[in-house]
Amino acid sequence: MIGIINYGAGNIFSLTAALTRQDITYGMVNTVADLDLYSHIIIPGVGHAGAAMQKLTQTGMVDAIKVLKVPVLGICVGMQLLTAHSEEGNAELLAIFPLKTKLFDKGLSIKIPHMGWNKIAFKNNFLFEGVAPETQFYFVHSYFIEYNPIFDIAAVHYGDKFSAAIQKDNFYGVQFHPEKSGKEGERLLKNFSNLSL
């Protein structure tokens, strides 16, 4: 069963609805003790990364999350929290990935936020099992995770190339919203729920 870290950063109705549509069972993780109840963990998140990190810290779960051994999926700001630092609020984050979360460069003549459907180039990774090449996913964000070939499992172009998905051991992150990305997004959530290490 999937445990959703419940730390008050954004609404999770759409995520739980998508899991329900896929017959994936889930529960809420409110305390460190709750973490043991689940085989998989999702860290959702919408809004300001610095503020989200503050809220997560207030739950007292930060240290326990860092040493999780089960599959963990961070979505959008939940993914950014897995990196070391965000320019949004100049915030120190979980540092599970030695990566930085940066603001899009207006100088590249792109609109901010990056909002809409964009094509990703994903690597051979179980998270994308059965997902058609050239599939587009739904993004909405103003900060991005720098591209690093060591951790990147899916890259995307907007102004510049950055990571749409990353992995390190049991930790996964996706910048797009699988719960809003049509059937292929739902497939990704299903794949995550079937991940075993």
Binding site: R21, H177, S181, G185
Partner: peptide, 11 residues
């Protein structure tokens, strides 16, 4: 809105 969000998989 709740009914739509339960069923719809796009924004």
């Amino acid at each position: 809105v709740k009914s739509v969000a339960r069923q719809l998989n796009i924004p």
